[in-house]
């Protein structure tokens, strides 16, 4: 799981020290990546997001799963 190695700064700029790839993350993406890298469960992440952004837990869960697919596309998650 390469996201564990991602160096993410406070502005949401992420650098992958293995491949040299860089990414610009919005606040939500940054939060999800940091939580996934810490091993937080998807359910927990969705719950937290639903409270922060005033959406249902189901909507938040869909967004988390959708974002995880994007991370796989970039080779950051297996």
């Amino acid at each position: 799981m390469r996201i564990e190695n991602l160096a993410v700064n406070k502005n949401g700029f992420a650098f992958d020290p293995t491949s040299g790839e860089t990414f610009t993350l919005n606040e939500t993406a940054k939060e999800i990546i940091e939580d996934l890298a810490r091993g937080v469960e998807e359910k927990e992440i969705a719950k937290k997001l639903s409270e922060e952004y005033d959406v249902t837990q189901e909507e938040a869960m869909n967004d988390v799963l959708d974002f995880k697919e994007k991370l796989k596309l970039y080779g950051l998650l297996s």
């Binding site: 650098f15 020290p17 293995t18 491949s19 040299g20 790839e21 860089t22």
Partner: peptide, 22 residues
Amino acid sequence: AIKKMTTTHLGKIWNGVTIRHE
């Protein structure tokens, strides 16, 4: 080890970044 971030039209490195691809 490095990754070429931008290159000239001849493929020569212009900007690059160090990486640790073990």
